[in-house]
Every structure is written in C-alpha cells, then in structure tokens.
Write a protein that binds this DNA or RNA. Structure first.
Lengths: 334, 334
DNA sequence: TTCTGGTAGGCAAACGTTTGCACAGCTTCA
DNA sequence: TGAAGCTGTGCAAACGTTTGCCTACCAGAA
C-alpha cells in the first residue's frame, strides 16, 4: 500500500509550512506569488491529492463535497432517472454521491441515515418513507440539510420537490373516461404513501367530475412493485363485472399488469385499455404504444440537488417547494 | 447544528478513558464485564454513533466499511441490476456504497477514481473504460482492492466477474440462423470495448459455423446508447438488400432499434426479426415478446461484491475470475 | 526616528478515532 | 517471598487537514 503524498510532504518539498500549502490549495489567505508557484510545483511533482476524509473530519460544517441520496430502489427507472439528475448536478459542482437503497424498509432507512450522518455528508436527498418519518425528522433537527423528493414530510419546513400527482392522475383518468370507459380499475400505491394517496384522489376526482360512481371493488392497493401489479390486475380482471380500463399507479405495477393482460391473452385497448404512471424504456415502442403519465424524474433529481446545494451554502434561506407537472402522453393503449 | 456525542462524551459519562470505550465498541482488548455494562449504558443514553470519518482517517488500511462502485450509467438497467446486487451484499456486511456514474467519459472516470481513493474506500468495483485503462491500473498499484465487472483489464491479475459474451452472442445468432435467416444485421457495441468485441466474435463464429458469409455492410458499431441503436437500425433497414433479422448488442440499443422498426411500421418477426442482448423490464410482455439473451446482472454485482469483501479481508489471496453464463430466452420476436 | 498598519507565512490546536505502550493489581508457581 | 504472567485500564501519539493567533517584515505617515 503506497502511501499517497500528504500536505506535510508537499510542505517539506516546497520548504514552507503546511498551513501555507493548505491556504494555497483553498485560496484562503494571502500567499505570495512566488511561494504559491513553489507550492504548486511541489504538488504537481508529488501528485498530491487532498485527503477528503481528513478534510471532512476537520471542517464539520459545510463543504465535505459529499451528498447522500437515499432511494427506495435503484431498479425502478423513476428513481434511476432521478438519481441521474442528482448525480449530474453533483458532479458539475464537484460533489460525490453516496447512494443508498432502502427498499421501503424502515430499518434499512435508519441504517443509511445513520451512515450518512456519521459520514458527515453535507446534505441528504430522500423520499421520506412516510409522512412523519421520525428518523428523518431527527436528521433535520440535527441540522443536516435535507431535501425531500417525490414524497413529502408533513411536519418540518423543508425544501422539497415533488410531482403533481393529483393532477397527473386526474388527467389520466379524465382521458380514460373520455374514451368512454365507465368501469376503471385502479392499481394503486400503498395507502400510507402520499404519492399513492394523491393519485387515488385524482382517480376519485375524475370520477366525481364526470358524475361516475366510485366502486370500492375496482380500487386495489399495491406496493409499487411489479408483482403486486400483476396480482391486482388478475384480481380486477377476474371480477364478475370486470373493468374495461386499468389505471396503474407506477411503472413497475404497470409492467406487472401488462403481464397479467398478456397471460390472459387480452387485446389492448379493445378488450382492456390501460394507462400507467411513469414512462418506461419501451413504452413508446410497445405494441400498442402505451399511454402514460410521464413524471419528470430527471428534473426532480436535478432541482432537488440544486436546492440542496443552495441550502448548504446558506442554511438560513427560506425553504422552497417545487411542484413539477407530469405530462400525459397519449398513445394507443387507451 | 447539534453536535453528536463523541467517544469523549461517552467516556466522561461512564467515568472511563476513551480507549476503554473504543475497545468496548470494537470488542478489541479485554474489558471487565461491569465496566463494559457502564460504557454500553452511557452510549445508549447519549445515543452515541461512531464517527465514520474519524475512524477512516485513523485506520487507513482495511475497514472503513465503504465501497466504491463506478458504472457507466445507472439508467441502463443492466447496471442498475448490477448495482443492486452490489448494494445488497454491501448492506448485509454493513458496508455503504459510494456510487459514481462515469458515462463512458474518461475524465469523469478519473475524477471519481480520485474521489474514491481520497475517501479511502476499502475497495472499488468497476467496469474499466477500456482494456488498459491507466487510471485504474494506477489505483491497483496504489494497493486498493479492485474488482472488475463486465469488462476486464488486459494487464493486472485482478479479481473479476464477467459474463460469457461470446457464448451469449453465439447462441443468439445460432438461433437466428436456425430460424432461416441469412442476412443478419449487427448493431454492435464500441469496437474498443471487450464486451462489444466478444459479442461481435460470437456473431462471426455463428456465421462461420453455419457456413454463412460475413458481410461488412451488415455490421455496425454503436455506443451502447439508445439513440445509436435507432440510427444504426435505420441505416441497416435502408440498405438496398436489407437484413431480415437484427441482433442488437445491448438493451438500450435494442430499444432504439425497436423504435426504428416501429417508425417504419415493420412487423416483427415477419418483416424483421430481432434478438437483443439484455433483458428489459417489458420485454416479456412486449408484443411480440422479445427473444433476448439475459445477462445475470444482479449476480454479477453480487459476486463482485463478495469477491471484493474477501479481498479486503485478505489482500494476498489469489485472484479469482468468474465467468457467468447468459441465458437465451426464446420468445416470439425471432 | 518612531509609530501604524498591512502582508506573508509559521505555530499549534482541534476534529474523533484507534492502538502501542505502560502500569497497577492480582494470581500462580517455585 | 519474589519473580512471572495475566487482566483491566489509562496515557498519548497519530491519521491529514483547517484555522485562529502570532510574528516578522516592510512601507508610509507623523
């Protein structure tokens, strides 16, 4: 294990004190031009790279240049896109990213929250597991900048960037109704998630607006995973009086529903119409192309990271809350 | 910013020296049962969490309990699955994961490699950008455990886990040929990537085995991104004598090719057959369901992480090299 | 000349750990 | 009784930075 050059090595070689080297690097304090040149030269010759760990230990506040991102599942393309958005702005600002998968598991979320704090990250981006997530609240109370994405925290006056789930679902279901459907099955998200609830609300409001009755048997709650989409679609399609259209509340569940539909040999959209939340890699070339409500996942991540960086700069700035509009992409599946 | 409790606080409260506390936590050294209980109690009361940064600074070798993962693009589901595999075993072993997206950009790769070293990660998992990537080699020379995934490094005797790309492509193209196709367009990966080359070799070998001529005009090289799949498919399909089947060398390019096919209104598989590398979220429910060669991406990540952990434990163990077999999933697109 | 003030750079503490060494007290054995 | 060995604990250095404070020097003003 070859030890990398440290400040001390550079200082020795440039014949100055380590503080001078540190100040040269960070451009803090006045350093003579000639001394500076000598230091720079020594750094280059030794291939000096500052040790981020030591730096982080010393300066607890502010710039460790490390962000934490905790997401439910990287395999969900919504979160992959979001992560990519975060990563891009982090990189542009020379921040690295500590990525954590919490899998909707509260213990895992807690573990990662602990890790991130104990790594002294400069800030954390996450979708809270539910609305008053005590672990997240504690982090906030500890004074670590947090921005919520996708879902929000009921208490706490935090930066957040969300998608307008209600409007997204409303537009989708309005569209379904406009196609003449009267029995619309809902493959919903967990009832205790704000996204699940908001989308459900959109579904109901669209029905109310159209004067359509809301039938409890057509409303099912899944867990945002593919398998539950499949199961619930089968349940709905097995009803004595099955729905003629399905609205699936996220991408994975849409894929699951599509599996169920394929297994039953049903034709889309004649025998069963479907609209899904989330754009999927193949949805535009699907046969038939899928009508979906596309969430601006990349942008959510991007804005969240920008907000976080601003807050790290200035802890006192007022919390801002962004609500991004999803887009209904009408194709052929409904 | 509430300062978290430190070793010193715990020591004070338990009326012992900090070294005693440290030893209690790490179970190193003999500590009296009664003292231990007192320390544990104090820790609990203060909500003490060890500071990972300080720990990492002190113990340069070994357990910082932090792994680095550098991947081309998290939006590529192959790498998302792989990342998930890594993450799962990391979590099981109480390691956190520093995730980096290098986007096939050498400067970005170098940046992240620097960050990871300067964060003193215990080890790094990555697909080298190409076969003799000097930056990676330097990291290895610095004594940091590295395991290569997906692609390999020509020099250096490293742990690696790869997929048998040659066999995967061979089986796929054999299958295409068995369906009676004689003009098979290849949407290949970059010629300077080992995966691209291996898959090309499979394509050629299948042709040779079958006594089919290899036509240069049918072979195109993309960059593993969706757009290039689309472009190349259009090129191939515009040929005076177009191919009757396409073999696309990764998931994103397959999606691109599908776009081109859809834009031209071609029927799969009658007018154009297609086989892709990589399983995509919707490929089994696609219409028609896609014939693909599925790479065990999750397993690649999982084994890589396991190998890395073993190497961290024991730097001297001989390098092991795993080659996982992909699976040809025959559905209806060819 | 002496004083004031500014500039360049050195000194050493601090961040929160881990760990080699020292040492006190006790047991054991000759 | 005393040497040897073990057990439990404390002391302090070290990891590589950043930063408040101090000093030495020099220029310009009085």
């Amino acid at each position: 294990m070859k030890k990398p050059a440290s400040l001390i090595d550079v200082a020795r070689r440039a014949k100055v004190n380590i503080s001078t080297v540190s100040r040269t690097i960070n451009q803090t304090g006045k350093i003579g031009a000639e001394t500076q040149a000598r230091v720079l030269k020594a750094m280059r010759e030794l291939g000096y790279k500052p040790n981020r760990v030591a730096r982080r230990l010393r300066t607890q506040e502010g710039s460790s240049h490390l962000l934490g991102l905790i997401i439910p599942n990287i395999q969900n393309s919504f979160f992959a896109d979001l992560a990519r958005g975060v990563e891009d702005v982090a990189y542009k600002n020379n921040f690295a990213l500590l990525l954590c998968n919490y899998d909707e598991d509260e213990a895992k979320e807690r573990f990662y929250l602990d890790v991130l704090q104990s790594e002294s990250v400069d800030g954390i981006i996450l979708p809270p597991i539910h609305e008053n997530d005590p672990a997240v609240l504690q982090v906030v109370r500890n004074g670590i900048p947090v921005v919520c994405v996708d879902r929000s925290l009921s208490s706490g006056n935090l930066d957040k960037v969300e998608v307008d789930n209600h409007t997204g679902a409303l537009k989708a279901v309005e569209h379904i109704i406009a196609q003449g459907h009267k029995r619309i099955g809902l493959i919903g998200g967990p009832a205790d998630s704000s996204t699940g609830r908001e989308r459900l609300r959109g579904y109901k409001d669209a029905h109310n607006q159209a004067g359509l009755p809301i039938k409890a048997e057509l409303i099912r709650f899944g867990d945002f995973k593919q398998e539950s989409g499949q199961t619930l679609a089968h349940e709905l399609l097995s009803l004595a009086d099955p729905p003629t259209a399905l609205f699936a509340c996220n991408g994975l569940m849409t894929a699951g529903a599509l599996e169920a539909i394929a297994a039953r040999g049903l034709k889309i959209p004649k025998q069963i119409a479907i609209v899904g939340f989330d754009e999927l890699p193949l949805s535009s070339v699907f046969n038939p192309p899928l009508t979906v409500v596309r969430q601006p996942a990349y942008e959510v991540g991007k804005y969240a990271a920008e907000l976080l960086l601003k807050r790290i700069e200035d802890a006192k700035r007022p919390a801002t809350s962004l609500k991004l509009m999803p887009e209904l992409i009408i194709r052929k599946s409904c």
